[in-house]
Simulated scan of single mutants.
Amino acid sequence: MKGSGLGGPGDVKGGKTRFDDVYDRPDPRAYFARLAPLRYEIPHHAQGVFRRTVADWRAAAPGGGGQGSPTVLDVCCSYGVNAALLNHDLTLAELYEHYTCPRAQRLSTAELVAWDKRFYAERRRSDAVPVVGLDIAGRALRYALAVGLLDAAFADDLERGPAGPGLRRALSGVGLITITGGGSYVTRRTFDALLDAAHRPVWVSAFVLRTVSYAGIAAALDAHGLRTVSDPARSWPQRRFTDAHEQAYAVAAVRALGADPEGLESAGRFHTVLYESRPAARWEAQ
């Protein structure tokens, strides 16, 4: 999810509640405590998808046979939750338990970082891939770096300007871009900046709320030789609504985009669609 300095707890922009006060703290305890009652779960659904996409990328790499690893760039990575789930034998439910348990509440941030270094090191998968984080939430990035979830992190705001030298260097090795919580905050400007700096064909896997259009980003990806596919009939729940106002906003936004909220947003939860973008030749080869 995107960290930003705009708004405060309960702020609503366009009807969607913002949680900016928990996106950029020195550690993620408040983040998990706030989102647990809302059953924020999209990283859980993305975990298996991203692991399969990494495996597909390896199989499609020159030489095939599953050799090599893509560097993953997680857009709007915040505290590195997607990296934690991609590279470690963990579930999202276990992360909620870890960060809300009584022991975690007694620790200082420095003590939590030391505990988390061991926690993640003990659960590191043998097939872990390098992960680069991108988010404007600097303190969240520093935590994710300190505990070993991210190999590099950048706070470049690509909605406002081009990638800086450090991010451009990191992008030279990126093979997969992932996003689960930033579709409401970033536009084609971010993806144009990323792909302009990439040095190889890049795949993109994006879970995007049904309340926002992905057309602009898909057009940007197409301009860089990537074809986007999705199944609008299939969705993944993101979280419960905070209140009736937020639900009314979501239902209206989905209808305005020509989709049907019945049984999804009308039943009380945000839902996402998965968009996957790869070079056209790669889709044709499948």
Results as ranks from 00 to 15, higher is better:
199 H>K: 15
172 S>W: 07
192 D>P: 08
95 L>G: 02
180 T>W: 10
163 A>H: 04
181 G>P: 07
169 R>L: 14
162 P>D: 02
102 P>K: 07
199 H>D: 15
97 E>I: 10
150 L>W: 13
98 H>R: 15
118 R>M: 03
119 F>M: 10
108 S>I: 10
111 E>H: 12
151 D>Q: 12
122 E>C: 12
153 A>Q: 04
188 R>G: 15
101 C>V: 02
135 D>Q: 10
106 R>A: 15
161 G>S: 13
123 R>F: 00
162 P>R: 02
149 L>C: 03
98 H>W: 09
103 R>C: 03
127 D>N: 15
182 G>E: 06
135 D>V: 02
123 R>Q: 01
117 K>G: 10
154 F>M: 04
99 Y>H: 15
93 A>D: 15
201 P>D: 04
199 H>N: 12
165 P>V: 12
162 P>A: 01
114 A>V: 06
142 R>A: 14
144 A>R: 09
143 Y>N: 04
139 R>F: 01
184 S>A: 12
201 P>L: 04
171 L>C: 01
125 R>Y: 00
105 Q>H: 10
104 A>C: 01
134 L>I: 05
140 A>E: 00
171 L>H: 04
197 A>L: 02
177 I>S: 04
111 E>N: 09
167 L>F: 02
166 G>N: 09
149 L>A: 06
184 S>M: 10
152 A>W: 08
166 G>F: 11
98 H>N: 12
180 T>A: 12
108 S>M: 11
169 R>I: 06
102 P>F: 05
92 L>M: 01
101 C>Q: 13
165 P>I: 04
147 V>I: 06
144 A>L: 09
160 R>D: 13
165 P>C: 07
201 P>I: 04
115 W>G: 00
193 A>F: 00
185 Y>E: 15
124 R>I: 02
95 L>N: 03
175 G>W: 11
170 A>D: 07
158 L>Q: 05
106 R>H: 13
122 E>K: 15
93 A>I: 02
130 P>Y: 09
98 H>Q: 14
110 A>K: 13
153 A>M: 10
97 E>Y: 10
95 L>I: 06
197 A>E: 01
137 A>C: 09
92 L>Q: 04
149 L>F: 02
125 R>I: 00
96 Y>P: 04
123 R>K: 05
103 R>G: 08
170 A>V: 07
138 G>L: 10
111 E>F: 08
112 L>W: 01
110 A>Q: 12
142 R>Q: 13
189 R>Q: 03
155 A>F: 02
116 D>Y: 14
134 L>W: 05
123 R>Y: 03
148 G>C: 04
195 L>G: 03
163 A>C: 14
95 L>P: 01
141 L>I: 00
139 R>G: 00
181 G>H: 07
156 D>H: 08
138 G>R: 14
123 R>E: 00
176 L>Y: 12
107 L>R: 15
180 T>C: 14
127 D>H: 14
121 A>N: 06
138 G>S: 13
154 F>E: 03
109 T>K: 11
144 A>N: 06
169 R>A: 15
109 T>L: 07
94 E>I: 12
112 L>E: 03
179 I>C: 15
97 E>R: 15
103 R>N: 06
124 R>T: 02
189 R>F: 01
